[in-house]
Computed example of a mutant assay.
Amino acid sequence: MTDNRRILDDVANTVGDWALVSDQVMGGVSDGKLSHEALQGRMALRLTGHVSTENNGGFLQMARNLGEAGGMDASGYRGLELKVLGNGETYNIHLRTKDVTRPWQSYRHSFAAPDTWTTIKLPFGDFEPHRITSPLDLKSLRRIGIVAIGKAFNADVALSGLHLYR
């Protein structure tokens, strides 16, 4: 059996599992970059770029698929713990489950990314459904994304750790 906590543990060594997604997939003009680099003494995955709301756009995302085709079972955990560094802006975590069938649907939670490494805990019970009526089903967590969204700004957010916590 796979240890679900370990699937998310070491962001610094799983950079190849993450992908950059931008609003360009729907005609937007936001432009970003995903890199693996040392920041303030830690290896991290870093999302940088400019979020533009022009042409009906407005997001940059670093995303990772979880588990096999059916996703992973996170039902034994209370939430996500992130180790983040940023530029003081507010970012989102977007979760997708087997119930999410449209690109605009997700379960969302916002967080601030300060300019020093900070550990943030996000309880699953605080995630809000976005354009979906199904409740968050933690038995089928399929994808996670760190998202710069909703306004024009320069994004700069880094992730050195991502864990499930009990």
Rank of each mutant, 00 (worst) to 15 (best):
M1L: 12
D9Y: 11
V11Q: 05
V11H: 03
A12Q: 10
Q24A: 12
Q24C: 01
M26P: 02
M26H: 05
M26F: 08
G28I: 04
G28F: 04
V29R: 11
V29Y: 08
G32T: 01
K33P: 00
S35W: 02
H36D: 08
H36Y: 07
L39T: 01
G41V: 07
R42S: 07
M43C: 01
A44M: 06
R46Y: 03
T48V: 13
H50M: 10
E54H: 13
N55I: 00
N56P: 00
M62A: 15
M62E: 04
A63N: 09
N65R: 14
E68F: 11
A69L: 14
G70F: 09
G70R: 14
M72S: 10
S75Y: 12
G76L: 11
G79I: 03
K83G: 15
L85F: 11
E89R: 14
N92M: 08
I93D: 00
L95G: 02
T97C: 09
D99F: 09
V100W: 00
V100Y: 00
V100C: 09
T101K: 14
Q105S: 02
H109C: 04
S110P: 11
F111P: 01
P123N: 06
F124V: 08
D126I: 01
F127I: 00
P129T: 01
H130C: 00
I132N: 06
T133M: 12
T133S: 15
L136F: 09
L136D: 04
D137N: 15
L138N: 03
K139R: 15
S140K: 09
R143I: 00
G145A: 14
K151A: 13
K151R: 15
D156M: 08
H163W: 12
H163V: 06
L164N: 02
Y165A: 10
R166C: 03
